[in-house]
Computed example of a mutant assay.
Amino acid sequence: MDELVDILDNQGNPLGVSRMKSEAHREGFFHPTVHVWFYTSDGQVLIQQRGRQKDTYPLLWDVSVAGHIGAGESIEKSAVREVSEEIGLKIRPSDLQKIGVFKSVQKHSESLIDCEFHHTFLCELRVSLEKLKEQESEVESLALLPIIQFREEVLGLGTDKYVPHTKEYYSTIIEALEKTFRANL
Rank of each mutant, 00 (worst) to 15 (best):
K103H: 10
F181H: 15
V45F: 02
S64P: 03
G72L: 00
G100E: 04
G158I: 05
Q11F: 09
V139R: 06
Y162S: 00
F181D: 11
V17K: 11
T33G: 11
K167W: 06
Q97T: 07
S18F: 04
G67K: 01
K90S: 13
L4D: 13
K161N: 11
I147V: 13
D55I: 14
A176W: 01
D95M: 07
Q44V: 04
P164V: 00
H108D: 12
L155G: 02
K98S: 12
F181S: 15
Q49W: 04
I173G: 05
L155F: 10
G158A: 06
G156P: 02
A24F: 00
Q11R: 15
V139P: 08
E124Y: 05
F117I: 03
I148D: 15
E152A: 11
F29D: 09
E134D: 09
E3C: 13
D9Q: 01
I91D: 08
S94Q: 13
R182V: 13
E76C: 06
F150H: 12
E3W: 03
P32T: 03
S18D: 01
E168C: 04
K21V: 05
T166D: 03
Q97A: 08
Y39N: 00
L125A: 03
A24L: 00
E136W: 07
F150W: 10
L144F: 08
L144E: 10
I7P: 02
S104E: 14
L185I: 08
H31C: 07
M1V: 09
E153A: 12
I173R: 06
P93F: 00
K161Q: 14
K133R: 14
I148S: 15
K133W: 05
L129H: 04
H25P: 01
L15Q: 12
G28H: 02
D160R: 13
L132R: 06
G100L: 01
L15R: 11
S111W: 08
Q106K: 15
V34P: 01
V63G: 02
V34I: 06
D114W: 07
G72M: 00
